[in-house]
Design a binder for these strands. Structure first.
Lengths: 180, 180
DNA sequence: CTGGGACATGTCCCTAGGGACATATGAGAG
DNA sequence: CTCTCATATGTCCCTAGGGACATGTCCCAG
C-alpha cells in the first residue's frame, strides 16, 4: 500500500495529473519504487473516491489535475509517523549470488563485470542529480532538501553494490577441501 | 518467478524438504528475498509436476524430501546465465525519505535513529555470519563460498543504509530561500 | 498415558503489480 | 487539410505474494 502514499506525498508538493505523477515516478523513483501508469490512474481514482485528493482542474486532452485534501495530508503524515516501516528488500541479484557456484568461472566473471557497470552507471546518475541539486537547479525548498536525502541513499546504495560486484570478482572461485 | 529458481538453487546443494527450505529462506534470505511457506510448498508441487524436482524420500510426520533432477539443474543454470537480471528494488524507506519534509524535526530525528539502529543491527548479523564462515564453521565448499559473497553484499548494503541514516540526521532540515 | 509443543504440509482469499491492449485529443509537420 | 506523434487516461487479465486458517504427526514432559 505504498504507491497510495507515494502519490499522496508527491501531491503534497502541489497539484499534478496522473501523467505528471507517472513521469515523476519514472524520473526519480524508477529504481527504488517502480510504478506503472495503470496503477497510478487506478489509485488516483480510489483516492478521489475516498476524499484524500480532489480534481483541481480539467485541462486539454482529458487531463485531470489532482490536488491533495486536508484529509490526504493527514493520511500521509499518519503513514509517515504511525505506520511501521516496511523494510522488505527483494533483490534478485543477491538471490542469484547464492548460486554463483553453479556458474562457470568466466561466465561468472562476465556477469559480475556487467553488474558492476550497471550499478556504477546508476551511481553516476544519482551523483549527477545530486550535483545539479547542489548547484541549486531545483531551488532550496524543503521538498528538494528531502529529495537530496533520497538521492544520497541512491548514491550510497548503488556505490555499495558496484563495489561489491567488483570485490566479488577477486574472490577465488572455490577452495580445496579443508586441510584438516 | 525467482522463488522458483531460488528453490531449485537451494536444492542443487542437496535434497531437502519444504520445511527445510522454508527454514533456509528465513535464516539467510529473509532480508533479501522473503518467502512464506505456503508459496514454497505450492511451488515445490509445481516443480515436481514439471519434473524439475522429484520426491527423494518420505519421512516421519508426512515429511517429503525433494531432490533436484537433471532438468532442474539445467533450468537453474539457464536462469543464471541466459535470463536477464531483474534489478528491481522496492525500498519503502527510500520512498518515505522523499517525504521527510512533511515530518516535524524531532519526529524525523527519532525515525532516522531507529532506522540507523535497525540497519546497523542487520549489518552486525551479517558480519557475525561472515566471521563464522571465515572461521570455517560451514566448511569450504563452493556453495559456502557463494554464500560468503552473498553475506558480503548484505554487510555492505546494510552498512551503507546505516551510514546514510546517520548522515541524514546531520542534514539541516530546510534552507532559507536562495540568497539570490 | 495424556497433553502441549515443535515438526510438517497444505488450502483459501485477497491485494499489489506487470504487461498487453484500447482510446481520445491536441499540436505541429508537410 | 491530413497525418503522425506526443499527451493523457484508462481496461483487462494474469501471476506473485501476504496472511489467516486448517490439519496431521511425532516427541517429550509431567
Amino acid at each position: 500500500m505504498s504507491l497510495r502514499h507515494g502519490l499522496l506525498g508527491l501531491l503534497a508538493e502541489g497539484p499534478a495529473s496522473g501523467y505528471d505523477l507517472a513521469g515523476r515516478f519514472t524520473e526519480l523513483l524508477s529504481s527504488v519504487w517502480p510504478a506503472q501508469h495503470p496503477k497510478i490512474y487506478a489509485e488516483l481514482n480510489k483516492l478521489a473516491a475516498e476524499g484524500l485528493v480532489e480534481v483541481e482542474s480539467e485541462g486539454p486532452r482529458r487531463r485531470k489535475a489532482y490536488r491533495i485534501t486536508d484529509a490526504g495530508i493527514a493520511e500521509v503524515k499518519r503513514w509517515l509517523t504511525d505506520v511501521e516501516v516496511d523494510h522488505t528488500m527483494r533483490l534478485q541479484p543477491l538471490l542469484r549470488s547464492l548460486f554463483f557456484w553453479l556458474m562457470d568461472t568466466d561466465e561468472l566473471q562476465r556477469h559480475l563485470e556487467a553488474e558492476a557497470r550497471y550499478y556504477r552507471e546508476l551511481e553516476q546518475n544519482y551523483r549527477d542529480y545530486a550535483a545539479r541539486k547542489d548547484r541549486g537547479e531545483f531551488g532550496y525548498s524543503e521538498q528538494t532538501q528531502s529529495m537530496r536525502v533520497t538521492i544520497e541513499a541512491g548514491i550510497r546504495l548503488y556505490s555499495a553494490l558496484a563495489d561489491w560486484a567488483e570485490w566479488a570478482q577477486t574472490v577465488p572461485p572455490a577452495k580445496p577441501a579443508k586441510p584438516s
